[in-house]
Simulated assay, not measured.
Amino acid sequence: MIRIGIVEDDATAVERLLSHLDRFQRSSGERFHVGAFRDGADVLTDYRSDWDVLFLDVQMPRVDGMTAARRIREVDSEVIIVFVTASPHYAVSGYEVDALSYLLKPVSYTSFEHEMNRILARLQRQPRSELLFNATDGVHHRIAVDDIRYIESVRHRIDLYTLDTVFSIATTVKAMESELAGKGFLRCHSGLLVNLRHVTGVEGNDCRIRGGGTLPISRPRKREFLAALAEHVGSRGISA
């Protein structure tokens, strides 16, 4: 699944991009997880390297797209940046932040489709860590490790939760913990393995998970969990 962020203060422009993404998704067979931000300041708040692509409006009231891109590049050299602007002279500045290109407003579907094909070509050249497994329904799956939110032990199997799907696998949390070692996963409870990139906060003895819901943090694991989360955020995040 490709994770796409739209950073745009104009609601009409956002709707146009969402419509183009939906049309391209249906015609290409690709799957997108899309998030929208109203300003550059919003995308910078607690920024983590969770996005594959960012469509950045150049002119926004609090933090403009070029400033946001410079801040993002300080911690994320991989995300593909495409500027969306009504003024083509801004395109030259895009070289400073290694932007792929720019789209001129109002964005036509023809231009958007061309850009998405370029984006897909670049993403295919970037190595992605993937997990291969057979689910209990007998189907063989390949998913991006970054798309896994958390893994839960359920009797003699585990349930693997992604951004929009749950897979059941005949294995153990311990086995998955070993397979995913070094990829940002940590136990918050004896039967729960969570991807730290999807933790959005901690309240008491629970951690909030991107996509909704919370997971319990056991008392013996809380100190280790908080320390690992702080290290993870500190190494990948920036503040506005």
Score class of each variant (00 low, 15 high):
residue 136 T to E: 04
residue 143 I to G: 06
residue 98 D to I: 09
residue 72 I to W: 07
residue 63 V to G: 00
residue 225 F to K: 11
residue 91 A to P: 11
residue 129 S to L: 07
residue 75 V to M: 01
residue 215 L to T: 01
residue 220 P to N: 02
residue 237 G to C: 05
residue 208 R to Q: 12
residue 136 T to W: 07
residue 47 Y to F: 14
residue 78 E to G: 07
residue 5 G to H: 05
residue 120 L to D: 05
residue 109 Y to Q: 03
residue 151 I to W: 06
residue 77 S to F: 04
residue 71 R to T: 04
residue 216 P to S: 01
residue 220 P to Q: 02
residue 20 H to Q: 06
residue 178 S to Y: 11
residue 85 T to M: 06
residue 62 R to W: 01
residue 159 D to L: 13
residue 73 R to M: 13
residue 229 L to S: 01
residue 17 L to Y: 08
residue 197 R to V: 05
residue 134 N to V: 07
residue 45 T to Q: 14
residue 198 H to T: 01
residue 178 S to I: 12
residue 186 L to S: 03
residue 218 S to C: 00
residue 67 T to S: 10
residue 154 V to L: 02
residue 14 V to I: 06
residue 201 G to M: 08
residue 111 S to R: 15
residue 127 P to C: 00
residue 220 P to T: 00
residue 28 S to T: 01
residue 8 E to G: 13
residue 196 L to N: 03
residue 46 D to N: 10
residue 60 M to A: 09
residue 63 V to W: 02
residue 128 R to Y: 05
residue 164 D to H: 09
residue 48 R to Q: 05
residue 234 G to C: 07
residue 238 I to R: 02
residue 30 E to P: 01
residue 32 F to W: 02
residue 53 V to E: 15
residue 120 L to G: 12
residue 5 G to A: 14
residue 224 E to F: 10
residue 3 R to F: 01
residue 175 A to Q: 06
residue 100 L to Y: 14
residue 102 Y to F: 14
residue 1 M to W: 06
residue 87 S to R: 10
residue 116 M to I: 06
residue 111 S to G: 15
residue 83 F to E: 04
residue 41 A to I: 12
residue 64 D to S: 05
residue 139 V to L: 08
residue 136 T to K: 09
residue 196 L to T: 03
residue 204 G to T: 05
residue 83 F to N: 09
